[in-house]
């Protein structure tokens, strides 16, 4: 995460309370290779089962409340990195999912009100990280999001938690 501004086309998953078994089902837990995880993302989320097999590269995914609630499984984060998702913007995130994502370098943006923000699939969004702003380039609208805490930025800039552990004495 070197850039201060992130751009990408939007994919909206307008669902609250998506849990990790809907993102990456428990029957697949022995799979750890990111490329093998990739096609299974949202494999148990009615209406979105095809997500894993589509090309979502460089997209920004938008989700509802409590995204990623449920288990600690790291694969539910790894799969989005395998898809080269630029960021996930959500109304809110499950606390374990939030830390798993930060530790792996997946950018999560907490933006209460994002589902009321006028936005359609494939609109282009810009996330201004330093000013905590999200703007819709197609609609010419903008909204505030929560700013990203400094320790999170430090971990993400290091390329992830384990990389931070390699570079810094703890």
């Amino acid at each position: 995460m070197s850039e201060e501004k992130i751009n990408g086309q939007v994919k909206i998953i307008r669902v609250d309370d998506i849990d990790t078994d809907q993102i990456f089902h428990q029957s697949l837990l022995t799979i750890h290779d990111p490329e093998e995880i990739k096609p299974h993302i949202f494999g148990n989320l009615p209406g979105h089962q095809s997500f894993g097999k589509e090309n979502n590269e460089n997209k920004i995914v938008i989700v509802g409340k409590n995204f990623g609630k449920g288990s600690t499984r790291q694969q539910a984060v790894t799969g989005f990195l395998a898809h080269k998702i630029k960021a996930i913007i959500g109304e809110s995130f499950g606390p374990i999912y939030y830390s798993n994502a930060v530790n792996a370098g997946l950018l999560l943006i907490e933006a209460p009100g994002i589902l009321e923000f006028k936005i359609d699939d494939n609109d282009t969004l810009e996330i201004d990280l330093s000013n905590a702003m999200i703007s819709n380039e197609n609609k010419g609208t903008a909204m505030k999001c929560k700013s990203i805490p400094k320790p999170v930025i430090d971990i993400m800039k290091a390329g992830g938690l384990l990389e931070l552990g390699e570079k810094t004495e703890f």
Partner: peptide, 23 residues
């Protein structure tokens, strides 16, 4: 007690440290 993913645990096994967003 808190649940944690693979990366957090591997880091903790090495350092004994954990970051937490104070709830």
């Amino acid at each position: 007690g808190q649940g944690a993913g693979d990366l957090m645990l591997a880091f903790a096994v090495k350092t004994g440290k954990y970051w937490i967003k104070i709830p």
